[in-house]
Design a protein around this nucleic acid. Structure first.
Lengths: 208, 208
DNA sequence: TTATAATTGTATCGAGAGGTACAAATTCCT
DNA sequence: AGGAATTTGTACCTCTCGATACAATTATAA
């Protein structure tokens, strides 16, 4: 008993979303044309519009998909027991993701629409908001850490969260510019020097 | 005695370049249309093409203009006497420039074309090269510093230069996202914590 | 005065952008 | 079998893109 009447869809929604993600990731929102999308997704234009709405709607769906599939390391990092480990997992997780050979280099949430024309400006602001949400989550985690005595009293969670996000954004630009995974790891090492605590499981265990 | 025959130009080249810069800076290479440019520059299309070539040529001219007028702080920083002062001036100079209220927020060299369609890809690569040139200049300055005993032997100039550029790129993204000058200064303060030396004239003198 | 050389403004070009109308095709429900 | 409902593919729409043709205009040089 099929709940849906009418001719069934001949393509897989998630597979199509994944293809769309890869194109948006490489070319950005403005740089991606409808022809790019339909070619990569293997469907024609009316099917795309019927399934996802217009280009802007599709991009937001892609952003959600991207957050679930490629930014899960943030949630993992926030679940780490100590503030130091949170920062360490955050930066190393970002380094791994940004230079994953199976995906385009860099971060869609940064290079998707950093600056753009008037048409795409709402997309640009949307991603600013989403980045701010991520930063707020980090800040709240670090505030909890300080209340637990896990951070010194002279360490300000808001400043540390801002700093962490800045390093991640900087690494995104570097990755988009062709930086290797090893270079990103060196950046993480330099950045973690300023963290108010010592010792990294990544260094100790030879992680990755 | 005029050296040039023919009808004289009725607009100022540098003023037009400055107007073009502001548009490219806000909207990026792809997000800027010829109509945007001619409107902002106060000239019509054939005048633009006669004076600057096509859109791509104009953008390269704008990049040169931008480097001279808005990235001079890098040269100043590299002329500082100590490695620590170089880094300090570099980051604080970037913070000032990126949040200058007289110009669009962020850095044209980053957000001009971080990711884009096929048409603009050569522009994207051009800016990757220019950023790499800047990083190389910093690295060479730090290598000199180490040879002068100005940096500890376990400090690697290549890693430090990469780290500095990454923080600057990250601040560029933050500025483009609406970060204030004060926030950027806090980022600099956090980033300088990891530098292998102490004491900042910015902090001591209450610079800016 | 005439020829030459450059700029300016209008009007337009072909190509590609995002988005849709519409009929054929394929399924479920009665 | 015969609708009702949905997807698919082709063809097309309007709009904007970057780029130019061309004549009128304004200067210098002979």
């Amino acid at each position: 008993m099929n709940m849906v009447v009418g001719r069934p869809r001949t393509f897989d929604i998630d597979k199509a979303l994944d293809r769309a993600l890869m194109v948006f990731w490489r070319k950005g929102y403005e740089g991606t044309s409808l022809a790019d999308l339909t070619n990569a997704m293997g469907i024609n234009r009316p099917s795309l519009y019927a399934a996802f709405g217009n280009k802007e709607d599709l991009f937001r769906r892609v952003l959600d998909y991207y957050s679930q599939r490629h930014m899960a390391f943030i949630g993992d990092a926030l679940n780490q027991p100590t503030a130091w480990s949170v920062a360490d997992h955050l930066l190393n997780g970002a380094a791994d993701m940004l230079s994953d050979p199976g995906t385009p280099p860099g971060c869609l949430m940064v290079q998707g629409a950093l600056s753009c024309g008037d048409n795409a400006d709402c997309i640009r602001r949307e991603m600013i908001t989403r980045r701010a949400v991520g930063e707020a989550a980090i800040r709240e985690r670090l505030e909890r850490a300080r209340s637990e005595g896990d951070l010194p009293a002279n360490a300000y969670p808001a400043d540390l969260a801002l700093y962490l996000m800045t390093v991640i954004h900087g690494m995104s630009v570097q990755a988009a510019s062709g930086a290797t995974h090893d270079e990103l790891r060196r950046i993480v090492k330099a950045a973690m020097r300023s963290w108010p605590k010592q010792g990294s499981v990544y260094q100790k265990n030879g992680y990755r």
